[in-house]
Design a protein around this nucleic acid. Structure first.
Length: 445
RNA sequence: GUGGGCGUAGCUCAGUUGGUCAGAGCGCCAGGUUGUGGCCCUGGAGGUCGCCGGUUCGAUCCCGGUCGCUCACCCCA
């Protein structure tokens, strides 16, 4: 041990040694494959943005947790806590030149300054998928389909996860029918966001009480009564008299059938108690949970039709979601879907004596140029150790160079899994024109 | 931000009612002679028992503080 001090990683941040990074990439790869299947293109932006980009547009919860500081140029900056404002900023400058709808996705590393706990660190990676420039609910359905497909790609099925969908437009209609003043609608959303965490009496007080919204007892009763059974069937039955509700209800049924056509009926259900904390959502919102309810939300998203103009762009409708790697990683692990980690190399070249080392390097050079992964000992270890290293590295085959064989112009190639050995002309291994690998030769012979 | 639990080798942990108590397994390194792995055997490296202070003749073990981890609350990218 050295006399110098040790450094630990900052709280809430993670290291990714190879096995961990392999798991992370397993998730990222699934995300990229699925996004690609839906025609989405990957983009990225800077991890550091002007502070105001977030203080103006994000919900106050996010603002309170900003990882912010003043840089050496006296600029107030923040590590990005979410990707959507950056996307809006990026598109504000170029959306006019882009054919609509715009299908983009990103896997940014996001930051927040908050005490860490299970499923919630100070840093995480989030799959952000956005569809910009299409106001219809067909776009909402497509985006949710991408999210579910991303999870399905990792092995999670309808028995493991479900998407709960709500709609702020429909709910606004319901509230209007319940005679809630339009100006109080956001406050009602905020109060109802707590419906699964607080007793109804408290919610009632928030809605009706003098210190609350001042809805009045009767209207608060009506709102809570509605939320005791907030299903679409209920809405269609009880609010048929409201044209606004009826029209939007039909729209949601259409949305539902689109998801059915795409094969996701088993994953999706309407649940109008879902509100979503972010302030900028304007229409359909959704969250995806594990059915067992053991974890936090895996994914959340929805429509945000005003954000683009808020950051100086054109008014463009948009819908998107964010899916974090932390909770998802826990769900995938918990479900036993963690892939086996077995790294490997194509060849390990063993030199019996130091005399063969230059030949080993020549073979390695040629084979690497042919695209194969090759390792040989750097330290002149015993043959036994070299074999041990080969096994530990997961070598598919070992090329053994011994004085006797080299004398005869051949090398011994041992296939590690079977232990089978064959002699191969060294000329074959050092000839860049020969694309065939030793193990292929082995199988062919 | 609030409260509970925890903090001994790289990892998982044992241990002393304060005095050979600094340990095990795994991992790592090296050997088990002369050209062959994954098993086995032997040996070794590695810890100021999270950090600081206090009590004591003496603390890893008691007390206080602090940092970190963790769970819950708050809140939710």
């Amino acid at each position: 041990m050295s006399a110098y001090r040790k450094y630990a990683k900052l709280p809430g941040f993670r290291d990714f040694p190879p096995e961990e990074l392999a798991f992370r990439n397993h998730i990222f790869d699934a995300w990229r494959r699925v996004a690609g299947r839906y025609g989405y293109r990957e983009y990225d932006g800077p991890p550091l943005e002007e502070l105001e980009l977030y203080t103006d547009k994000s919900g106050s919860e996010i603002v309170g947790q900003l990882y912010e500081f003043t840089d050496k140029g006296a600029r107030r900056v923040a590590l990005r806590p979410e990707m959507t404002p950056s996307l809006a900023r990026i598109l504000a400058g170029r959306s006019r030149a882009l054919r609509k709808p715009i299908r983009w996705f990103s896997i940014p590393q996001l930051f927040r300054y908050e005490r860490q706990q299970r499923g919630r660190l100070r840093e995480h990676f989030q799959w952000n998928v956005d569809l910009v420039g299409e106001p219809g609910t067909g776009a909402d359905a497509e985006v949710l389909a991408v999210a579910i497909d991303g999870l399905r790609e990792l092995g999670l099925g309808a028995a493991d996860i479900r998407a709960r969908v709500s709609d702020r437009i429909l709910l606004s209609g319901v509230f209007a029918a319940l005679e809630v003043p339009p100006g109080l609608t956001p406050g009602v959303f905020a109060a109802l966001d707590r419906i699964e965490r607080e007793p109804v009496e408290r919610i009632h007080e928030r809605l009706a009480g003098p210190g609350g919204l001042g809805l009045g007892r009767e209207r608060a009763d009506a709102v809570l009564e509605f939320f005791s059974d907030p299903t679409i069937g209920r809405i269609e039955r009880d609010f048929a008299g409201s044209p606004r509700v009826a029209e939007r209800g039909a729209e949601l049924r259409q949305y539902e059938s689109v998801l059915g056509d795409l094969g996701f009926a088993d994953f999706v259900e309407f649940d109008f108690s879902i509100v979503r904390g972010l302030a900028y959502y304007t229409g359909i919102v959704f969250e995806i949970f594990d059915r067992a309810g053991r974890f936090r939300a895996i994914c959340g998203g929805g429509r945000y039709d005003r954000l683009m103009e808020h950051v100086g762009g054109d008014r463009l409708s948009a819908v998107g979601f964010g899916m974090g790697d932390v909770v998802l990683g826990e769900v995938v692990r918990g479900r036993g879907l963690l892939p086996e980690y077995r790294p490997g190399v194509d060849y390990y070249i063993i030199s019996i004596s130091v005399a063969e080392a230059p030949l080993a390097r020549r073979i390695a050079g040629v084979q690497r140029r042919l695209g194969r992964s090759v390792v040989y000992t750097l330290g002149g270890k015993s043959v036994k150790k070299q074999f041990s290293s080969a096994a530990a590295l997961g070598a598919g085959s070992v090329i053994v160079l011994g004085p006797d064989e080299v004398e005869r112009g051949v090398a011994v190639v041992r296939e590690m899994a079977s232990g089978q050995e064959r002699e191969i002309p060294i000329a074959e291994l050092t000839d860049p024109a020969r694309g065939k690998s030793p193990s292929e030769t082995l199988r062919a012979s």
